[in-house]
Amino acid sequence: MNKKKSLMGAVATLLLAGSVLAGCSSSNTASPTPDGGSENSGASGPQYTFRLADTHPPDYPTVIGDQKFADLVNERTNGRIKIEIFPSGQLGEEKAVLEQVQLGAIEFARTNAAPLAEFNEELSILSLPYIFDNDEHLWRFLEGEMGNKMLDDLEQSRMKGLAYYSSGARSFYSRKPLTSIEDLKGQKFRVQQTKVNIDLIEALGASATPMGYGEVFSALQTGVIDGAENNFPSYYSSNHYQVAKNVILDTHQRTPEVLLISKSAWDKLSEEDKKIVKQAALDSVSTQRESWEKWEKESAEKLKAAGVTITEVTDLKPWQDAVKSVVEKHGSKYQEILDAVDKARQ
Rank of each mutant, 00 (worst) to 15 (best):
2 N>F: 06
7 L>P: 02
8 M>E: 15
10 A>G: 15
18 G>V: 00
21 L>M: 13
23 G>R: 09
27 S>Q: 12
33 T>A: 12
37 G>Q: 09
37 G>F: 10
41 S>Q: 14
48 Y>A: 06
51 R>L: 04
52 L>R: 02
58 P>S: 11
58 P>N: 05
62 T>M: 04
68 K>H: 14
71 D>R: 00
72 L>M: 13
79 G>M: 11
83 I>T: 06
85 I>M: 07
87 P>C: 08
98 L>Y: 03
109 A>L: 03
116 L>C: 08
120 N>V: 00
120 N>P: 00
128 L>V: 10
128 L>E: 09
130 Y>Q: 09
130 Y>W: 12
132 F>K: 04
134 N>E: 05
135 D>C: 01
137 H>P: 15
143 E>M: 09
156 Q>C: 00
162 L>P: 05
178 L>Y: 07
178 L>D: 02
196 V>P: 00
199 D>C: 12
202 E>L: 09
204 L>W: 06
208 A>R: 10
211 M>F: 09
217 F>T: 07
219 A>S: 15
222 T>P: 00
231 N>I: 05
231 N>C: 10
232 F>Q: 03
233 P>M: 12
235 Y>H: 04
237 S>T: 14
238 S>I: 00
242 Q>R: 15
243 V>F: 14
248 I>S: 04
250 D>L: 05
250 D>S: 14
251 T>Y: 14
257 E>N: 13
258 V>Q: 04
261 I>A: 12
264 S>K: 13
265 A>F: 12
269 L>W: 11
273 D>V: 08
278 K>I: 00
280 A>F: 06
280 A>Q: 03
283 D>H: 02
286 S>Y: 08
290 E>Y: 01
299 S>L: 05
301 E>H: 09
308 V>R: 12
316 L>Q: 11
319 W>D: 08
338 L>R: 00
339 D>G: 01
340 A>Y: 02
343 K>R: 05
344 A>E: 03
